[in-house]
């Protein structure tokens, strides 16, 4: 066994700290634009985590799709609606308190379950990429064993984007 504080562990803790700090900042910022930027930080932190875990292709896809496309799309939506929007400082309502307690209980339960379970550690001798590069191995698996889901997802994406264009279109008689 390697020592607990190997370089990977330190990197993992720094990345987790960054992700959770950005997520908490997302919750605590008042201005909507800042929240969107904090969420971009979470996405980039997750991409770094994927690359640390050896999933380079997923990490790069995360940067391109989440940190690139989705964050920019959210910023565009904020600019197109009321971009001065702020979340007002509101007192603790019953609903908010119930949501907080429920999420806290869910988190504590999940953490207890995770702690109480003996998780198998990956076998370092197994090569998930079968000697190829990560991208090549994912491409092989995607086009051999996941052909039908891949095509279905492309269909879903086309339908969703055409639907989005139609929904967002200016129609006559809206005013």
């Amino acid at each position: 066994m390697s020592p607990l504080w190997s370089a990977q562990m330190i990197a993992f803790f720094l990345i987790s700290l960054f992700i959770l700090a950005c997520a908490v900042m997302m919750l605590s910022f008042r201005k909507v634009v800042y929240m969107a930027l904090a969420v971009g930080g979470v996405f980039i932190g997750c991409a770094a985590l994927y690359i640390l875990l050896g999933a380079e292709f997923v990490g790069i896809a995360q940067v391109v799709v989440y940190a690139g496309a989705i964050t920019i799309l959210i910023l565009f939506a904020i600019m197109l609606t009321n971009h001065e929007a702020t979340e007002p400082e509101e007192p603790w309502t019953v609903r908010k308190a119930l949501a907080a307690v429920g999420c806290f209980l869910l988190g504590v339960t999940l953490l207890f379950v995770i702690r109480g379970q003996a998780w198998p550690q990956g076998d370092p001798s197994v090569d998930v990429n079968q000697g190829m590069s990560n991208t090549l191995a994912i491409g092989e698996a995607l086009f051999k064993s996941y052909m039908i889901p891949f095509e279905l997802v492309s269909l879903l994406l086309t339908v969703a984007l055409v639907g989005a264009v139609i929904l967002a279109q200016q129609r006559k008689g809206d005013q």
Partner: peptide, 20 residues
């Protein structure tokens, strides 16, 4: 790269996912 020389405990990553 290819070899799975990752020594991060699985539970820590799952805990991060749960908190997120």
């Amino acid at each position: 790269g290819g070899t799975g020389a990752i020594q991060i405990p699985t539970g820590s990553i799952l805990a991060l996912g749960a908190i997120l």
